Simulated scan of single mutants.
Amino acid sequence: MDNWRKSSYSGPGDGNECVEMSTTPTHTAVRDSKAPTRAILTFPAGAFGAFVGALKSSRSASPR
């Protein structure tokens, strides 16, 4: 995975506290932008979409 990119939400100030993503037609990889040479999580393409959907769902269901 060579083409790493940060979220568009990574602005000045907290741009160093973000994850980076790299995609291929079959996989999505995620790494910590502060430690890019450390562990990388790799998901099959369909599983990553389900993972993000579950995060969004659990976030909206959490009491604030």
Rank of each mutant, 00 (worst) to 15 (best):
M1Y: 06
M1T: 05
D2I: 00
W4K: 00
K6R: 15
K6M: 13
S7I: 03
S8H: 08
S8F: 02
S8M: 06
S8G: 14
S10P: 08
G11F: 04
G11W: 14
P12A: 12
P12G: 14
P12H: 12
G13F: 08
G13N: 13
G13T: 07
D14Q: 02
D14I: 04
G15C: 11
G15K: 06
N16S: 07
N16C: 11
E17I: 03
C18W: 03
C18R: 02
E20L: 09
E20Q: 10
M21Y: 00
S22Q: 00
S22N: 09
S22A: 15
T23K: 08
T24M: 12
T24R: 02
P25W: 05
P25Y: 10
T26I: 08
T26Q: 00
H27N: 12
H27T: 12
T28E: 12
T28W: 06
T28F: 04
A29D: 10
A29E: 12
V30F: 04
V30G: 03
V30L: 13
V30S: 02
R31I: 13
D32N: 02
D32R: 07
D32A: 00
D32K: 07
D32I: 01
S33V: 14
S33G: 01
S33H: 01
K34W: 02
K34R: 06
K34D: 04
A35R: 15
A35Q: 13
A35M: 10
P36H: 00
T37G: 14
T37Q: 14
T37L: 09
T37P: 03
I40W: 11
I40V: 15
I40M: 03
I40N: 05
L41T: 05
L41G: 04
L41C: 04
L41P: 01
L41I: 00
T42A: 03
T42F: 05
F43H: 13
F43W: 02
P44W: 05
P44T: 15
A45S: 13
A45K: 11
A45W: 04
A47Y: 10
F48I: 00
F48Y: 05
F48H: 15
G49R: 11
G49L: 13
G49A: 14
A50C: 09
F51Y: 02
F51T: 09
F51N: 04
F51M: 01
V52A: 11
G53E: 12
G53Y: 02
A54H: 11
A54R: 11
A54V: 11
L55E: 01
L55T: 00
K56R: 15
K56E: 12
S57C: 01
S57D: 05
S57P: 06
S58K: 10
R59M: 14
S60N: 15
S60V: 13
S60H: 14
S62Y: 07
P63V: 15
P63G: 09
R64Q: 01
